[in-house]
Amino acid sequence: MGIETLTWDVDVISITCTVRIMNKHALPRLRLVIYLRVSTKGQVDTYGFPSQLKDCKTWNKPHNHRIVEVLREEAESGATDEEDRPELARALDMIANGDADGILFPNLDRLARELTIQEAALSVVWAHGGRAFGADQGEILPDDDSDPMRTFVRQVMGAAAQLERGLIKNRLRKGRAAKGAADGYAYGAPRYGFKAEKKALVEVPDETAGEARAKELRAQVDENGKQTSYREICRILKEENFKTKRGGEWRPSTIAKMLDPEYRAKANERDARARQAKRDDAVMRKAAKARSRFSDKDAGEK
């Protein structure tokens, strides 16, 4: 309409301006809560809080909705989407209680990674008369029986995004495994004596000196043929101002991991089992919540 408008007479231009003003006032100024989410262990795409907030504010600038709250969620990496989401629950409560008219988020992926959780959150918003907006696509309209394609397209896009994230994670996992098999280091905190630099391990002189001193002490034996205890090594290293990797206190278990490969391997296996148990527990809690929702629904129908 831009070029054609220049050819119209003054009366038409006046009418056009009047219509635009009326449309602007016809759109309600909503109270929105901005919801942002990252993982505490970092985002693969480095899309952090500042960038997310900037995108939300950029989208809102021409709409001029009132931002009543900005909520930042630091979700624990590895947890399921339903866990550790107090800020999302708070945002939904604000809408349910009438303290906000809707929610604004950078994109659906930041609302929730899993399609089922996205749909559950949106259903809560819509059930209380709220509105949902993504900075990347505008308003996400509620389901409409007369337009089933609306629901289909939204869910297919969400499923496709979830599949893409799964494929990316799988490639990263395989790449790390291959790199670890090649040179012994792929990711994570390097052991004492080393640091990660440009995706490779390099020695830390102060730490290698501390490790050498610990080995020297462990090799010493008393008149009864006993080696220096790990606890005694801790005392001597502290006394000689050797620092731990994180600057904390020396502990016997730290010395054991440093000097005893078998102990270190067992400790790593134990940590891996603990992480897996945590993931299994999260899955079971999620299943219990889903079962509870179905049970409540069945009870209501009866």
Rank of each mutant, 00 (worst) to 15 (best):
A79L: 15
I233G: 01
E269H: 11
R37D: 03
E239T: 13
N64G: 10
R291S: 03
E239I: 11
R173I: 10
Q227E: 00
Q52G: 08
G166P: 07
R37Y: 04
V125E: 01
F133G: 05
L30W: 05
D143V: 13
L172G: 05
S253L: 06
K61F: 10
S146R: 09
D271F: 11
H65R: 06
L115Y: 09
I95R: 01
T18P: 04
R176C: 07
G78Q: 10
K179G: 05
P148D: 06
R285D: 04
F49Q: 02
R110N: 06
D298W: 11
G184D: 04
R270L: 09
E207T: 15
T5E: 13
K41E: 03
K286L: 15
R150Y: 00
Y187I: 07
V221K: 06
G2F: 15
G175E: 04
L92Q: 03
K41H: 08
Y185L: 08
F133Y: 14
I3W: 11
T116M: 13
R72P: 01
Q220H: 15
K41A: 09
E197L: 15
A75H: 04
I13S: 01
L32G: 10
N241L: 08
G247V: 10
K198L: 08
V125D: 02
E197M: 15
M157T: 13
D45R: 14
D55W: 09
E114L: 12
A178F: 03
H128F: 14
V19R: 04
D9W: 01
I117S: 13
A79Y: 08
R231D: 04
I103Q: 02
R270C: 05
R131Q: 09
T116H: 13
E139A: 04
L6Q: 00
A212Q: 10
A160I: 07
I117Q: 11
E73F: 03
N60C: 09
H128K: 12
G247T: 06
K215R: 13
N241A: 12
A288S: 05
A256K: 14
C17A: 14
G166M: 12
R66N: 10
S51A: 15
R264I: 03
I67S: 03
G78F: 13
R246M: 05
F242G: 02
I67T: 03
S14Y: 08
A272K: 02
E83V: 12
L163H: 13
Y185K: 12
A272R: 04
S14L: 07
T244W: 02
A209T: 15
R218I: 08
V202Y: 10
L108P: 00
S295H: 06
Q43C: 06
D143S: 09
R270D: 00
R251Y: 04
A282P: 03
I236Y: 02
A189T: 13
A265P: 02
G78A: 07
K215D: 08
E269W: 02
A112T: 09
S229A: 15
W126M: 08
Y192T: 07
R165T: 00
W8K: 11
T244V: 09
G175Q: 08
Y47M: 12
A256R: 01
F242T: 03
R293V: 10
D183W: 14
Q276V: 10
A91W: 02
L201R: 11
R31C: 05
L32R: 06
